[in-house]
Computed example of a mutant assay.
Amino acid sequence: MSPAPAGLARRPRPGSPHTAAAAAAARPAVPAATARAWAELLRLPAVFTVPGDVLAGTAAAGARPGRPAVLAVGASVCLYEAGMTLNDWADRAEDAVARPHRPLPSGRVRPRAALTAAGTLTAAGLALAACAGRRALAVAVPLAATVWAYDLKLKHTPAGPAAMAAARGLDLLLGAAAAGRPLRPALVPAATLAGHTCAVTLVSRRETEGGSPAAPLTALAATAAVTASLLPPAPRPAAPGPAADRPAVRTALALGYLATAARPLAHAALHPSPVLLQRAVGAGIRATVCLQGALAARAGAPAAGLLTAALAPVAARLARKVSPT
């Protein structure tokens, strides 16, 4: 049978693969810019720093990750992304001057859509926390309140860094609460993570216009102190096996944290320009993953620590395409 002349091709039968292909081709494609705009708004590379909070909290509580931990990770991710979206919504007027390329001032995402997304993500996060258990919900509620308070009121006040630090600390406690264990063993790891977060937040406050070396120097000192707290004590003779490997994992993760965060902070302290401050903030965000892994290893869960640290290269690779700050 000879092919039909051009323009007189037979119509495909309803339900045939040709019909489905034609319908798919007829649908308007979602603009790539829209998907990228939402990726920028949500700061997707930074989301890989979130699961480690729950894993470190679960390890600190002496539990193994299970279904409640998975639900808590989902809740943590939703609340984190709600904060990212709400952050840009609250700063849209300021960003129109300092960061006109951001999704909201550039018009690629509408403010109403961003605010709706923040509310929806918050509700989803609380719902997932409720599924993880009453204790998890009891931590997720103040966590969500802290996120909204920071973005809408506290960010540009002296209490801003402390509020951001509190949110990270609560996020780690969410892992312990989801495990159904007492929160007390997780308080020191939560404080350690909060201290790192506070230091990075102090640097981020001047990342658009530059500033003095005080903030990066403070963050550098905090990084050194956190690293010292993560390193194991002097080695003791031990039989080969998992117990002997634990200090090595903890040391490697602690030094990975130091290597990721310290050098960019030193550069920013020597020359606190916007570019170098932004690099220091990005490095501080990525270093959070190694910190979480080291905290898990210090709590006796080296496998969870290594699993957490494996997210760092993914975040770094994605950060080349979408800025985490």
Rank of each mutant, 00 (worst) to 15 (best):
S229M: 08
A303H: 11
A239G: 09
A309N: 06
C198N: 07
T218A: 15
V289E: 01
L255F: 01
A166T: 13
E209S: 15
L311D: 11
L170C: 08
P264W: 01
L306K: 08
T288Y: 02
A259C: 04
A294Q: 02
L307F: 03
A287L: 09
G282M: 10
G284P: 00
G256F: 00
P274K: 09
A199Q: 05
R168A: 05
L193H: 06
Q278D: 14
R236C: 03
A238K: 03
P272H: 05
P233H: 04
V203G: 04
P272C: 11
A259L: 05
E207D: 15
L295S: 10
A312F: 03
T251Q: 14
L306E: 13
S273A: 15
L220K: 00
L230G: 00
T288F: 03
A191V: 12
A238V: 06
G300K: 07
L291E: 10
L253A: 04
P247H: 11
R279Q: 15
A294G: 04
A224F: 00
L193G: 06
R206F: 13
A221Q: 15
A178H: 09
A224C: 06
V281K: 05
E209D: 14
L277P: 05
T208V: 13
D245Q: 14
H267E: 13
A190D: 04
L295V: 12
L170A: 14
R250P: 00
A224I: 04
P182W: 14
V226N: 02
A310R: 02
A299F: 04
R250S: 01
A269I: 03
D245A: 15
R168P: 00
A178Q: 13
L253G: 00
P182K: 11
L230W: 00
C290P: 00
H267N: 11
A268V: 06
L172D: 02
A165N: 09
R279G: 12
V249W: 03
